[in-house]
Amino acid sequence: MIKLLHVEDDADIREIAEMALSLSGEYDVVQCETGEIALAYVENYTPDVILLDMMMPGMTGRQTLEKMREKPEFADVPAIFMTARAQHAEIDELLAIGAADVISKPFDPIALGDQIKQAMEKARLTQAA
């Protein structure tokens, strides 16, 4: 099972993502509605991959990832951002700070699991190089 931490403030998106990923049988999904809650949760949990909403109240997805990356055990955990504002400049910026991928909203629930696995593989190959 792939341990996935999903940080998303929109309850509907959390529900759709959780249903799509759980139905595949490949993901153990933990969800948090804010960056602050996610940071508290990861004190005792290290996921295989992090799926972050970009724009959330309080901490943004980027700020949440930056805080997580301060912990050595999170240095190599692939992070994927989900955003409705998928402009080329923003995507390039997120990739430059170490995002494995950026998924545009609205996303395809059927393809989500495969997109995450592809991003994890891309991150693994990048780390090995």
Rank of each mutant, 00 (worst) to 15 (best):
M1L: 05
I2L: 11
K3E: 09
A11V: 12
R14S: 09
E15D: 15
I16F: 11
A17W: 10
A17R: 11
A17V: 11
E18R: 07
A20W: 08
A20T: 04
L21R: 03
L21Y: 01
S22K: 15
S22V: 09
L23T: 05
S24K: 08
G25R: 08
E26K: 14
E26M: 13
D28C: 00
V30L: 01
L39F: 00
A40T: 05
E43N: 06
E43S: 14
T46W: 02
V49S: 10
V49I: 15
L51M: 14
L52Y: 02
D53C: 12
M56C: 08
T60N: 07
T60Q: 05
E70V: 02
E73N: 14
F74D: 03
A75M: 11
D76C: 03
V77E: 07
P78C: 06
P78N: 03
I80H: 05
T83I: 14
A86R: 14
A86G: 10
A86Y: 04
E90G: 00
I91K: 10
I91G: 03
D92V: 14
E93N: 11
A96C: 04
I97S: 01
I97F: 10
D101N: 12
D101Q: 03
D101M: 03
D101C: 01
V102E: 05
K105F: 05
F107E: 04
P109F: 04
P109Y: 03
I110N: 14
D114V: 07
Q115Y: 12
I116P: 00
K117D: 02
A119G: 00
M120V: 13
E121I: 05
E121V: 10
A128D: 12
